Every structure is written in structure tokens, then in C-alpha cells.
Amino acid sequence: MNASPASYRSIFTPGLFGGQVIVVTGGGSGIGRCTAHELASLGAQVVLVGRKPEKLEAVKAEIESAGGKAATQAFDIRHEDAVRDAVRAIVAAHGRVDGLVNNAGGQYITPLADISAKGWEAVIHTNLTGGFLVARECFVQSMRSHGGAIVNIVADIWGSMPNMGHSGAARAGMVSFTETAALEWAANGVRVNAVAPGYIASSGMDHYPPEAGDMLRAMRKTVPAGRFGTEAETSAAIAFLLSPAASFISGSVLRVDGARPQVRMGWPMALPDAQARQRPAVKPYDGFHLAQTPRVFQDK
């Protein structure tokens, strides 16, 4: 692949995933889109998964224009038969699945007392059941025979997840699934880990209602690092866990959150940007050449 200013600037060695087939669910936007770009830039044949073919095709075109290899498979991860058929089609087309990034998910802002059973189940099915189904089928149909690596994307659930209790419950379940799958599938040469993004400046923030804008913009003040993370910082963690460098890591959760869960009452928050003259803040890493600022942060 020819390097150019219009290509992904990964910190990992070129060709790291050469010859590998890696499935990325939720690959049409946000962290999934960024991760797909990085993996493709490192030589992987990426298979983009999502419900909307037009979004997947747009990302596929981006990857191919940068010299990478991408394919699409549109289906709903919440439907067992659809998942089984789609993974079968992926294996038939590409021969095997070497890696899975279980990234698809979503939630909405609502306190527990106002969440209906239907709303609760919708989030659980998307963030837990769907991820389980895709991982199971990738294991059964390919990884059980060939080995592989799975990275489940969870969230900053440590302590609590107020106003998103349905998502917190689902993500906690996915952490437990990650640990169990790591144990049960280890004999087949399969590693299973999770990445827990904290407050990441991603297009996913644009799905929240406009009235949430002030809250979203203020969230960085609760992060000791004093800023939001980037999609590329999350993608780098995913790439590491998929790589041979993590060959003895399984059943673990890698947090990408700027130490936000460590915040405690009684400890003064001294944000790095307020102390820039005294000491430099840790600069964000953003190797994604097509990164987009969420609308909620524009013109602010």
C-alpha cells in the first residue's frame, strides 16, 4: 500500500494484519469506521457490518480509495438467523474469519424509572445479545478450527452509568461474556478481550437530542486528562489486542478513558489545559485522516 497524506497514520508496523480477514460490526460510522480504516491500512481484508448498506458502501469506498481492501455485509446483529447466514456468507467469500471487532451498539438517555420493557430489551439485544451472536457464529463457523482474536467494545461502566442503565447492564454483561469466552475458547487458539472507551469525540454523540448538547460538551471537565478521547486512540487499543503483541492477553478489558473512573469527591480536579503554562498536557493522538468533529462540538 502506498503511503500518502490521505492515508491512515497508524503507529503499528505496515502489513501487521496482512492476509487476515477481520469483521468490524458497526463499521459504517464512528469508532467502527475509524477502526476499519486502520485495520485496512495495516493490510487486513476488512468486512464492514451494519444495518444500512449505503453507510457501509460509503466507508468501503473510502478504504478502497486509500488502497485498502474492504467488503460489506448488511444485516441486523439482533436476529439469530440473519447472523448465522451472514457469517456463513463471509466465510464462503473470504475463506475464514481471523478477527472480530464487536463494535455495533447504541443507547439513549433516559433514567431507569422511565425505561419501558421494550426500550430495555432493544438496548440489551443490540449491546449484548447481538454481540454474543456474532462472536458465537464467528467461533463456530471459523475460529474453532483456525483460531482468532475477538475484541468486544463495551463502555465506561465502572461504578454506574446513570441515565443509561440499560446500556450499563448490557455492557457489564458483555464484560462477563468476554471473560467466559476467553476461558471456553482458549483451547481453540481464540483470544477474547474488550475495549472500554470513555468519553470519545465520535459521531455517536450526534445521535443524542440537541438538549443534551451542554451536558456532552461539559463532560470533558470530569476527565483528569481534561479532554475527550479520539476515535484513533480507541482504534489503536483495538488493533493492539488483535495483534500478536497481545498473544498472552485474553479475558481482559482495556480502558481508554483518561482515568475518568478514578475521579473521587474530595480530590481537586486540576485540568491540564488550565495548567498549560506549568506543565504540558498529554496531546491527543489522531491518526485518522478522515476524522470528523461531532456536530455538538462545532462552533463552540
Rank of each mutant, 00 (worst) to 15 (best):
R171E: 11
A172Y: 05
A172E: 15
A172T: 14
S176Y: 05
T178E: 04
T180M: 01
A182S: 14
E184F: 12
E184Y: 11
E184D: 13
A187Y: 00
A187P: 00
A187H: 02
R191W: 01
V192P: 04
V192Q: 03
N193P: 05
V195K: 01
A196H: 03
A196T: 09
A196Q: 05
Y199M: 14
Y199R: 12
A201V: 03
S202W: 11
S202V: 13
S203F: 05
S203K: 13
S203P: 08
G204K: 06
Y208V: 08
Y208M: 10
P210N: 11
P210F: 11
E211G: 02
A212E: 13
A212H: 10
G213L: 07
G213R: 09
D214C: 00
D214V: 04
M215F: 13
L216I: 15
A218C: 07
M219P: 03
K221L: 15
V223L: 07
V223E: 10
V223G: 09
A225H: 10
F228H: 15
F228P: 02
G229H: 07
T230W: 12
E231D: 12
A232K: 07
A232P: 13
E233L: 06
E233P: 02
E233T: 08
S235L: 09
S235I: 13
A236S: 13
A237P: 01
A239D: 03
F240A: 09
F240H: 09
F240Q: 06
L242A: 11
S243R: 03
S243M: 03
S243H: 03
S243D: 02
P244D: 14
A245N: 13
A246Q: 05
A246T: 04
A246D: 02
S247V: 06
I249D: 00
G251F: 08
G251M: 08
S252P: 00
S252I: 12
L254R: 01
L254P: 02
R255A: 15
